[in-house]
């Protein structure tokens, strides 16, 4: 039982074409349909008290999105999950929830994210060759690309924002890049920008087929932890 919960939700292919703000509105309406006793902000334009961890870009699927929500009454995670899922459209689903102590800190907590990026290249390459290219790419100390910042387009060295990068070749066409990247309000590295930089620096004519967010982490005394694990803080 708690007044506030932190939850993880997923988004699959069916709803990946909508933008972050549309996802927020979708949740607000689902909460209303479910008749959940969500708390509202005071003031002129009362809004539901719900805060999301990291914006979700158009085209991205994810199994690890996080948000905090506050209620006017005590709410169990189980009851929340079952009620909200009945009101959410197919394609978005709440997977787990835990009580959260400091509602709304989620945005500043998020520090890194893990992605799986499926891509293709015109000429087939074996995994070792491609892995070699990735290692060479990571060997550079400076990978400067133009990045959209609050102050407009700026050259930014993204190398420090890449924590790990590896490639694998699954059965069938294409390759999967597994990327562990800095994320969050401060030093966010978008996976599409990473791939752009990778293509640019290596000269590979790659086409990104899909991007999936596999996990998102909070930094807790030099340890990566799930945002649900640090909900007690």
């Amino acid at each position: 039982m708690a007044r506030a919960l932190r939850f993880r939700f997923s988004r699959d292919e069916r709803l990946k074409y909508i933008a972050h703000l549309d996802v927020l509105r979708l949740f607000e309406r689902a909460i209303k349909r479910a008749g959940l006793p969500v708390a509202y902000t005071q003031g002129f334009n009362p809004r539901q008290k719900i805060v999301f961890g990291l914006p979700i870009a158009v085209g991205l699927t994810s199994s690890a999105e996080y948000a905090d929500i506050e209620f006017d009454e005590e709410m169990t995670p189980e009851s929340f999950i079952s009620r909200i899922n009945q009101s959410l459209p197919e394609g978005i689903e709440v997977m787990e929830a835990v009580p959260v102590r400091n509602m709304g800190r989620i945005m500043s907590l998020i520090a890194s994210a893990r992605y799986e990026i499926a891509f293709t290249i015109p000429q087939a390459m074996d995994q070792d060759t491609l892995s070699g290219i990735v290692i060479d790419f990571l060997d550079q100390e400076d990978i400067t690309v133009m990045k959209k910042t609050k102050k407009g387009m700026r050259p930014v060295n993204i190398r420090p924002l890449i924590y790990s990068l590896s490639v694998r070749k699954p059965d069938g066409d294409g390759y999967i890049m597994e990327a562990f990247l800095s994320a969050g309000a401060e030093n966010n590295l978008r996976p599409d920008l990473l791939m752009q930089a990778f293509a640019q620096k290596t000269g590979l004519e790659l086409t990104v087929e899909s991007i999936h967010r596999r996990a998102m982490f909070a930094s807790d005394f030099n340890e990566w932890k799930s945002p649900l694990e640090v909900a007690d803080d």
Partner: peptide, 8 residues
């Protein structure tokens, strides 16, 4: 309508 749509 509010119940079935969740409109604000």
């Amino acid at each position: 309508s509010v119940r079935k749509t969740g409109y604000e």
